[in-house]
C-alpha cells in the first residue's frame, strides 16, 4: 500500500503528488487527470510565490473550484505536496495525516 492509497482509503483525497522545486517528483494523478494536475500545480505555486513575499510562514493553501478542492502543503523549502479532493473535505484531517507521515512523504 502506498501513502496515496492510505489517504484515498481514508477518504481524504482523490489524488496527490509531490513537487520538488516545481517539478513532479512522485504522483498518483491518473493520466486522465493530467489537466487537473497542471492547473493545481500552476495555481498553487502562483499563490505561494505571491504570498511568500509577505509571509513565508504560510505553508498551506486551498483553492475551491466548484466540486473540487486543490490543496498545497509545503513539506520543506523545496517540496510541495499537492492534492485534489472533494470541496468539503476536512482539511484539518489532511494536515494531521501529513504531520503524522512527513517522513514517508520525504522519502518519495
Amino acid at each position: 500500500m502506498t501513502i496515496w492509497h492510505d489517504m484515498q482509503a481514508a477518504g481524504l483525497i482523490h489524488c496527490g503528488c509531490v513537487l520538488l522545486n516545481g517539478e513532479v517528483q512522485h504522483s498518483c494523478f491518473p493520466a486522465e487527470s493530467k489537466k487537473q494536475l497542471a492547473v493545481a500545480k500552476q495555481a498553487l505555486m502562483y499563490v505561494f510565490r505571491s504570498v511568500d513575499k509577505s509571509d513565508k510562514d504560510y505553508d498551506e493553501a486551498h483553492i475551491e473550484i466548484g466540486d473540487a478542492l486543490f490543496s498545497g502543503f509545503k513539506l520543506d523549502s523545496d517540496r510541495l505536496l499537492i492534492f485534489l479532493s472533494e470541496h468539503d473535505t476536512n482539511t484539518l484531517q489532511i494536515r494531521q495525516f501529513i504531520d503524522d507521515n512527513k517522513e514517508r512523504f520525504l522519502q518519495l
Binding site: 483553492i63 473550484i65 482539511t91
Partner: peptide, 16 residues
C-alpha cells in the same frame, strides 16, 4: 486560467 471557472474561495493557513 479562465478554463478553471469560478474560484469559490482561497484559504491560507500556517502553523502559528
Amino acid at each position: 486560467a479562465s478554463f478553471l471557472g469560478h474560484i469559490d474561495d482561497l484559504v491560507l493557513c500556517g502553523p502559528q
